[in-house]
Design a protein around this nucleic acid. Sequence first.
DNA 1: CTATAATGATTCGATATCGCACTAAACAAT
DNA 2: ATTGTTTAGTGCGATATCGAATCATTATAG
Lengths: 150, 150
Amino acid sequence: MTADKTLSLYFSLFNEIGIISQLSSALVNEQLPKGLSNAHFNVLIHLDRLGDGQTPLAISRAFQLPKTTMTHTLCGLETHQLIEMRPNPKDGRSKCVWLTQKGHAFRNKIINNLAPDLIKLSTQIPQDRILNTITGLAEIRKIMDANRED
Amino acid sequence: MTADKTLSLYFSLFNEIGIISQLSSALVNEQLPKGLSNAHFNVLIHLDRLGDGQTPLAISRAFQLPKTTMTHTLCGLETHQLIEMRPNPKDGRSKCVWLTQKGHAFRNKIINNLAPDLIKLSTQIPQDRILNTITGLAEIRKIMDANRED
DNA sequence: CTATAATGATTCGATATCGCACTAAACAAT
DNA sequence: ATTGTTTAGTGCGATATCGAATCATTATAG
């Protein structure tokens, strides 16, 4: 295969991915109140799924974002009382991030509001298609992630 | 299929997409000089592929971005002399965006610099996998795009 | 034709992202 | 114990994103 063909193939891939990323962000944003963005919601999801009590640095690494960005995002979540920042008992420099009751409830509410849109999607696209696409994406993601480090 | 399963399936999908979107943006950003971002580069690509002379509004719609964002991005490109903004002969309120020689050359250079990374990827992932994934993504994107309007 | 509405682009203010520099705490090496 | 290095988090400045309001031009209605 020519280099040109390869390039345009991957440009197509990344173009589709970019568009869907934007569309899915829009879906979530529609459900969020003013003052809270995708960035905030993703952190809530993350803490709920993988457990809270993590440090800000660990979270910023999980999202591969600069820690200054995470400081800002966590600050917003704390202002809205969706998380609590407590000192890290194991390291005086560090903090631990905990979901509050309100944070849990908020996450659940947003996910519930999201459900109709996603369930509608699931009626429009065969499940096999989604599963196969996820499999392909996961492979691509793993390799790109591995390449990133060298 | 339960609603819960459906939700987590689509969350997985969008999660993979979000990560790859971030990784591919990073690939491009590595090749861009300070002062020019993905946003700028994507506009150059767009003008080269689909033809220049478009209005700012048309471009902002193509990317589904607010027109104020596009004003800002185009302003940056103009400062770097990668595009020219000329009055629209068909509408006194409007402008047309044209690639300069420098803009063309810049696009070509960046794409060339990007090539090694993408060609490496193409040696790591079977082409069929990429093609199938693109097909799946395109279907998902089309349906989400259509849903967006109602 | 004139008055009104709609449209393309910009300005402005608010928030987000991110690199750089800084502080405080922990760790490492003697 | 002391000193130098590394690490966690934050403050700050630059740029990006985006909604609301504004200005100029065009389209529409009567």
